[in-house]
Amino acid sequence: MSGPRYERSKRQDQHLIGFECQACGWVSFPEEKRTCKRCGDAPAEMEEVQLAERGEIQTFVVQQYLPDDIETPQPVAIVDLPQEGEGEPARAYGLLTETDLEEIDVGTEVVARFRELFSDGERPINSFKFSVPREEKA
């Protein structure tokens, strides 16, 4: 399919759909890879799987220098999102939102939050970020 990237990946960007390699079980997210990054199967047979909206931070980096409109420090995390069913979790890269650095560590549980990721001209493009659950701030 042609057209802008956010239209092509709209479904997985808004629904947390991953793609599971039928040869080895590795889960690709958000793109469906033609070649499995783990077992190298090509063209890989990928099956869609639904990912959970709650996962664990595996590691994170903190970005300090970003365009003016983005608040810093901006943590970016690698989050393992389990599948709704059986199978391996997907490894997702995500920005953290409404989360202070003191609140996160490796192993912290975070939830997927549907947020404005960027704008295409005036049009907001929404997809997933992560945050500590709101109830933990109550």
Binding site: V61, L66, Y93, G94, L95, E116, L117, F118, S119, D120
Partner: peptide, 11 residues
Amino acid sequence: EPVEYEGVKTP
């Protein structure tokens, strides 16, 4: 105010 950035790079 609307945000004015067109994409954030993830590592």
